[in-house]
Design a protein around this nucleic acid. Structure first.
Lengths: 109, 109
DNA sequence: TCGAAGGTTCAAGTATTATCGAACCATGAC
DNA sequence: GTCATGGTTCGATAATACTTGAACCTTCGA
């Protein structure tokens, strides 16, 4: 097969802005580990490999799961970049859909 | 025993403002049923007996549990009133502790 | 004092989530 | 190619959370 499947590259599913659900977003943010991740993305995209949790003992499959919950809730974007992945907050979409929510959470002590 | 235990009346525990935890609050709000309750308290205190869920089939013990989660997270106040209970949002405390959060959640579509 | 209304708590079963190792896949470096 | 790096997914198990009936408590009204 010489023809590449076109747009292959492990593409993960992201919900559309219109499908974002408030309770799902709140749930995604309601875990300390996931919240920690979100805070790290506050100032811009971060490569997953550089995105470390306070607890260094957590398995990589567990870490992957945390990202999955955030992605499926529509909180973050997880795109392929080189041999790794680039993570970013879906700020604009979240702000449009739930104005003030993300800032309130990020600003909270 | 003629002497009443003084301040008896089924007093439920409520966390202090300083002990409110963001992730716990977010978790409490991340359930559709609980969110529904919180919305009903938006415009002021409501007696529990008048606080009904969309789904009328839910058992009273289940309902009680929903209120418990909200209370233990510090989202609502649950005080005795007559033979029932009066529920209210802990608005001021939540606003002080997590500015903008409650409004963002309540205003969300 | 008795009964009914309104709620909490307990115990037990069910469902959902978290966690991890192992297997697997893609990319870039060589 | 081959190998190491970086991640995802799967399957299993542990931990949480949800749901409910039963038992119980308190308050109001008769």
């Amino acid at each position: 097969m010489t023809a590449p499947p076109n747009g292959s590259s492990h593409d993960l599913a992201h919900p559309q802005e219109q499908d974002l659900d408030l309770t799902q977003v709140l749930f995604a943010l309601s875990d300390p580990g996931r919240l920690e991740i979100v805070r790290q993305l506050r100032d811009g995209p971060v490569e997953m490999a550089q995105c470390n949790l306070a607890d260094p003992t957590v398995a990589k499959s567990t870490k992957s799961h945390l990202f999955k919950v955030l992605r499926e809730a529509g909180v973050i974007l997880n795109l392929p970049k080189g041999r790794g992945r680039l993570l970013s907050l879906r700020r604009e979409e979240l702000d449009r859909r739930f104005p003030g929510l993300l800032d309130a959470v990020l600003d909270a002590s």
